[in-house]
Design a protein around this nucleic acid. Structure first.
Lengths: 237, 237
DNA sequence: ATGTATCTGTGCGCTTTAGCACATATATGA
DNA sequence: TCATATATGTGCTAAAGCGCACAGATACAT
């Protein structure tokens, strides 16, 4: 039997790609390719979910919005994960929002199919749970980083985490939106990004960030980035 | 068949208490009561776990320690939860530490027993996963709170979350240690606690905090507390 | 081509918190 | 009883980040 693959193997989701062929074939008919555009809301606070989403080229940001409108990101999902963990964790809804941070594709799967396959207790269940644990690490590290590190360090972390999840060196994202993600003012992002530009680590033009020198970002970033990356590698690599 | 209970029903763990009798009876022989003292380490960063722990009267703090020694708490587990989720999530180890924040008892269960019962896919599995989702909410809200709220608000949140998990109005905890949990300086805690004392919300004497007026704490706390509490109620209540 | 909306850069005063120094108060043990 | 360790309170200075105001600069639509 051939290795399962969709149109473009490179754009596949890594969780699905890690499934043994017979499990993947069982799910394949239920998968549907869809595309998301920047800013699109995947699910709202407390909202009901009919599908889970396996991003291929899209990046999804998990955000919380306070009563006064302030926002902060707790985590980030790309082609290494799945959006909608509440559907297999049993909660049904999540107390946060999921917003497209980088436009692109995803594969969606009806909730019922996911839950039935999860209940089989096979490889799929194990993968979803290990992904969830990796996500917990990411959220935890965000908590720690928010408390202990500077805006510039966090911007580096955010850029690197995003860069890991897109195929290109360009990110389409305004400083305003990055501010919303990091939970800081837009001016704070301007300042930090300005310093990174001065070091020729990135270039920034009206909502288009180009990663010029990843090594420099990795020099400026706090240890949080590595902790998260290592844990994803360990659990899903 | 009688409702399962240990020596003191009041001190039981709520996850175990929610199990149907036949599932509980299966696990009961594997449970062993142990007691923890303040500051004791339940598990270390990356350490291997032989048991999971279901706190009864103890409170366990989940902490991360940076390379420079700075620490911050990501979450808190009491008699509403379980310590060692990595054992059923599949990761084996967690990238954080678990430290006793309030001395007391817990029931421990060998990893193998936990994993076998989890694999049965019964009520136990569902409960553990829902608890994990609630924990994710707690960690997420910690992340958001760390970013957006003042030390005083966070101290209130921390006091209320702790108070919910102990049977008494007194917490044994120095300002120094609270600083470590919240990831702020000891002096910052002194200041915030001083204001709460002035309002007669708490009294504070050398490592002994007494909650005098919960209502006042609930007035000063940020919305994060309610989000977490509501989610625990929804998922496990 | 031009007007308008959007995005980025910059200055300034204010608040919160960090970092440090040190004073005071209470428990503990020889 | 007294020395010592521990815990809390307080007073500085400095830095980071916020809120606000506004000035360019660039994209977009008509």
């Amino acid at each position: 039997m051939p290795v399962p693959e969709l149109k473009d193997p490179n754009s596949q989701n890594r969780l699905l790609a890690a499934l043994p062929p017979h499990e993947f074939e069982r799910l394949r008919p239920a998968l549907q390719e869809i595309s998301f555009s920047l800013g699109q809301v995947v699910y709202e606070f407390g909202g009901h979910l009919d599908y889970v989403y396996f991003p291929t080229t899209a990046i999804v940001s998990l955000l919380y919005t306070m009563e006064n409108g302030a926002t902060a990101e707790m985590g980030l999902t790309g082609n290494d994960g799945v959006v909608g963990i509440a559907l297999f964790m049993g909660g049904g809804t999540m107390p946060n929002r999921a917003v497209i941070q980088s436009s692109g594709g995803a594969l969606r799967m009806p909730a019922k199919v996911l839950q039935d396959e999860f209940a089989r207790g096979g490889k799929f269940q194990g993968l979803l749970l290990r992904y969830t644990q990796a996500l917990i690490t990411q959220i935890s590290q965000t908590a720690v980083c928010n408390r202990l590190h500077s805006v510039e360090q966090q911007l580096c972390r955010w850029l690197l985490l995003s860069h890991d999840r897109v195929p290109a060196d360009e990110l389409v994202m305004t400083q305003e939106l990055i501010g919303d993600m990091l939970g800081v003012r837009r001016e704070g992002v301007t300042l930090a990004a300005g310093r990174l530009q001065a070091e020729r680590a990135i270039s920034y033009v009206r909502g288009h960030i180009t990663i010029l020198d990843r090594a420099k970002l990795e020099q400026s970033v706090c240890e949080c980035y590595k902790v998260v990356r290592d844990e994803f590698d360990r659990l899903l690599g």
